[in-house]
Amino acid sequence: MFTGRTARLAVGNDGGEPLDLALEPWGDVHRILPDESCVVVTHSAAADGPWPGAGLGDEPFHVDHRPDSVTVWANGHCFHLSDRQGNEIEPYLYGGCPAQKPGA
């Protein structure tokens, strides 16, 4: 069973054009179409204490917005994307999140 923490951040596109969602520090880019949204999920192995990589206190995310893109810094050990119902959007490419492994 996974004993760490999980944080979720919903990112939506209510504009008329596709929105690029850049996920750092991994450099992945996901396109969010108009009227769609996704959830960035990150995990920390520590049950308490600061999130790894957090620049301002105990924040699991840092977000920068530009007219055609959003950059989300996920301050956990890994990340994955899901829809609002929790269904995975894209498989995690970097060895897997420990929280997603069977029996984690």
Rank of each mutant, 00 (worst) to 15 (best):
L19Y: 05
C78M: 08
V39M: 00
P52E: 09
H77R: 06
T6F: 14
D20M: 06
E59V: 11
V40G: 04
G15Q: 05
W51Q: 06
G53H: 03
L81T: 02
C97H: 00
P50V: 04
E24I: 05
W73F: 13
G16I: 10
G55M: 12
P60M: 08
E36T: 11
T71W: 02
T71H: 00
E24N: 12
H43L: 14
A104D: 07
C78T: 05
V41T: 04
A10D: 05
C97T: 06
R31W: 03
M1Q: 13
T71Y: 10
Y92C: 15
N13Y: 00
A74N: 03
R66Q: 10
V29I: 09
E59L: 13
L93D: 15
D20Y: 03
I89L: 15
H65W: 13
I32V: 09
A45Q: 09
W26R: 03
A54N: 03
A22C: 11
F2M: 13
A104Y: 02
W73Y: 14
V72W: 03
D20C: 07
H62K: 12
H65M: 15
G57Q: 01
G55Q: 15
A74V: 04
G96M: 07
G55P: 07
G27E: 00
W73G: 04
Y94I: 02
G15W: 06
P50Y: 07
L19N: 01
I89V: 14
Q85A: 15
E17N: 12
G27C: 05
V39T: 04
E90F: 05
E17S: 15
R66G: 14
F79N: 01
D68T: 12
G96W: 06
A54E: 01
T42C: 04
P98H: 12
P52W: 13
F79L: 09
S37V: 07
G95C: 11
L33Q: 14
